[in-house]
């Protein structure tokens, strides 16, 4: 048996799997998005742009997603960066791995369970009760955009810390020593050396978190209480409750297109900063 035939045999099952469970479903979504809703729900064949023209009906979901996803990404970045810096630069090698693993572990446990823990913390008997003792009455946290933001940052923080850590870890410490010898104050050395050289990690982390946030459903469903909803929540409603498959497909296509545009801009940025994608490594 020739090598190329062996390769073809090894690849066939994976190719079939991708064709049946990835390409076919994505094609169906695209086709359905040009169709119509049948009288009993589901899908009726057709070719119309009506569903796309209808997209403004879900404006609130897109607006919430497109505000809270970037805000959540930036908030996660601001919290993650100092921690990644601390782990990469300040911690002794003995503790480094341990502390890093402790950041990653929550990411691999059920996000459903981790998110609902915040119902206790943000609910009436949690933080609001604490605030009451210092005189702040009637603070509502649960089912607000703030609750969703906390959930987002909490859920995706590990994914942000890891790539930034990798970038900072690779940074040549002699550059900083040289800068100090030449009389550069630490804050300038940070702005001119550390920060630019860690940009690949920052971009990788931000992109990973942003992509995942764009498709988020669980966190707004659990902590937003139906008041703060994302495109993901609109999709669940359209497919499982109102069973409007054609319109739901158009919403899904719009979501993916917005994502692809963002990824396109991202790749440009990455090229400019010379980042490599393998920074993500294995989470």
């Amino acid at each position: 048996m020739t090598q190329s035939r062996a390769r073809a045999l090894l690849l066939t099952p994976a190719a079939l799997w991708y064709a049946a469970m990835l390409l076919l479903p994505l094609a169906v979504v695209l086709i359905f998005s040009f169709g119509e809703r049948s009288a009993i729900g589901g899908y009726a064949p057709g070719f119309t742009f009506e569903q796309y023209a209808n997209l403004p009906a879900r404006f609130a979901a897109f607006r919430n997603t497109l505000t809270l996803a970037p805000v959540g990404t930036i908030a996660a970045l601001l919290i993650a960066y100092p921690l990644a810096y601390f782990l990469a630069v300040k911690v002794s090698p003995k503790w480094k791995t341990m502390l890093l693993v402790l950041v990653i572990v929550p990411f691999w446990t059920s996000i459903l369970i981790r998110s609902y823990a915040w119902i206790f913390l943000l609910g009436g008997k949690g933080i609001p009760a604490l605030l009451e003792t210092v005189g702040l009455d009637d603070v509502r946290l649960l089912n607000t955009p703030f609750a969703v933001l906390v959930g987002i940052v909490y859920g995706y923080l590990p994914l942000m810390v890891f790539p930034i850590y990798v970038a900072l870890e690779k940074l040549d410490k002699r550059l900083l020593e040289a800068a100090a010898d030449l009389g550069t104050p630490p804050w300038r050395a940070f702005l001119q050396i550390t920060l630019p050289l860690s940009m690949p990690g920052v971009l990788t982390g931000s992109m990973l978190v942003f992509i995942l946030l764009m498709g988020e459903f669980l966190i707004p469903a659990i902590l937003g209480g139906g008041k703060v909803f994302f495109v993901g929540n609109a999709l669940v409603d359209l497919f499982l409750q109102s069973r409007n498959w054609a319109f739901g497909s158009a919403v899904a296509v719009a979501l993916v297109v917005i994502m692809l545009i963002t990824v396109g801009i991202y790749t440009r940025l990455v090229k400019r900063f010379g980042a490599s994608r393998d920074d993500v490594g294995l989470m």
Binding site: P25, G232, V256
Partner: peptide
Amino acid sequence: VFDLLVQIAVMIPGIVIGIATLIALVS
């Protein structure tokens, strides 16, 4: 082609994979 397929599978949001699979299989 395979690199692209792997990337698409990892990058497309789970929720889109979910609905796409649902309507494709049901059809």
